[in-house]
Amino acid sequence: MTSLLEVSGVSVSFDGFNAINNLSFEIGPAELRAIIGPNGAGKTTFMDIVTGKTRPDEGHVLWGGMNKSLLKMNESQIAREGVGRKFQRPTVFEDQSVFDNLMMALKKNRAPWSVLFYRQSAADRARVAELAEEIGLSDQLHRKSGELSHGQKQWLEIGMLLAQEPKLLLVDEPAAGMTLAEREHTTDLLKEAAKTRAVVVVEHDMEFVRRLGCKVTVLHEGAVLAEGSIDHVTQNRQVIDVYLGR
């Protein structure tokens, strides 16, 4: 199995602080992966590098079967390549309706000219309705997304990610601030998504990670500390030291 994303030997530092230190990471085309780690382990910086927000000082980030380098592309090009990202805080366009949010995310030509003359087709509307169904927001379609509850916004954002039809989904703490019921729904959404694409979930919450039931990568001080099933890593001596302190 060739990998979808291959990060090798990446380092980045801010003012002398090594946020990422010779990190290597790999994920296949249809895989669910959780990344855990204490604060400052470099989880968010890792996502920043993959999505083009931060340029690493050294290392390679290769993408897809053709081994394209993501380092030469900017954020929007990477997104068009098929990397979707969900932020820690729900970020949807609050001044616009759920329908418009999903419509904007729908996989279409993104060039200004074609967007200007874009006309919604029945198929597009059906696709949006289908996505809304999936994320449980069918009856909210024409509300402004700013009025949704916190959890609903999280789902909307996941829905927008799905609408993008990415090959790789990067999800940052999706369960933060959710009720138990909402968490279950979120878990289902992610598991479902991972059947057809790669999904990387960054999470603090061990319980949530356990529920995902997938391979876990533990980051610490910008490097991979351990990798394996959740039970495997939680029994790792080093991981226990890092999480509980010495």
Partner: peptide, 27 residues
Amino acid sequence: GKFGSVIRGIRDDEARVRFLGYSVEGY
């Protein structure tokens, strides 16, 4: 239309628009 959606998105949160794959600079 959708163009309006995109530019209003840029107004409120341009980083998010970028991660949706739109070339914010181009718009």
